[in-house]
Amino acid sequence: MNFIVNILSLGIPFSVALLIASLGEMFNQRAGVFNLGCEGIMAMGAFLGMLVPYSIGQGGPTSGMYNVLGLGLAMVVGALLGIFFAFVVVTFRAPQGIAGIGLQMFGVGTAGTLFRHFIGGTQSVPGIGNLPIPGLSKIPLIGPIFFSHNILVYLAFLFVPLAWYILFKTPWGLRVRAVGTNPRAADSIGIQVNRVRYQALAVGGALAGLAGAYLSLAQVKMFSDEIIAGRGFIAVALVYFGHWHPVKIMGGALLFSLAQALQLAIQGQGINFPYEFAVMLPYVMVIIVLAFSRESQLLGPTSLGKSFNREKRV
């Protein structure tokens, strides 16, 4: 039983960075733009998230406030990078894939350069500690699995119903879905397609920045320029995996992370199983699920990846 509790209690915090970044990417893609630069924005978020507490709040009595400032800075810069990306792919209608790869390289490279300039070598911060919920965290089995994590874990899972509500129950969510499905029809009823895409990319960027800051401030509490290590691309894949729906995306992030926790537990138990296969397990599971998804489920928003030109005839 302890074995299972360990897997579940580790898998949940492991999933948070992927979950937050995927929800952000979902807003991007629902608006018709896929942002492969998610990895770069996460890298910038990870660096800026720890820069504030490292520079001015190193373990002091107000370090909690500096953590919040770090998270805020990561989100603001993430949103600005999202807007910058929108400027390139929405206003100038550059190919989204190429521009996204450029943003990824730019973000990772810039974060690494700034890190070397402002911090130097790998350093750690006290970061965000766990916040066991009084009473609930003491419940046998349930407590350690669900109620003994840091505050960002709880917030990340609250984002799921919030994202669902925003996407499916608010006028803005309807506009996002409209411009991602049929921008010409949306335009004909007065929705400003490009403005909505800018807004969606800003939200997506802010969440990607927050996801990066989660890694550097809450999960490992340190930064190096390889901290993201492909998680931004996994977040993009999880949006497809979750069929652009917040709850299914959460399921995908949890499946991936629980598989990760499971493979670590398998390795640790000395089960005679090649570790290379164990390390591959989470990725293989995602591929299997994608392979067995119906094609119609993987089509996504019908205008995904297509730029919108009001003057262009169809």
């Binding site: 340190m222 570790y275 390390v279």
Partner: peptide, 18 residues
């Protein structure tokens, strides 16, 4: 002795998870 590999020389997030 619990032996586990992160699968990477540089991914310290994964090493932390291990």
């Amino acid at each position: 002795i619990m032996v586990a590999h992160s699968g990477s020389f540089s991914d310290f997030v994964k090493a932390g998870e291990v």
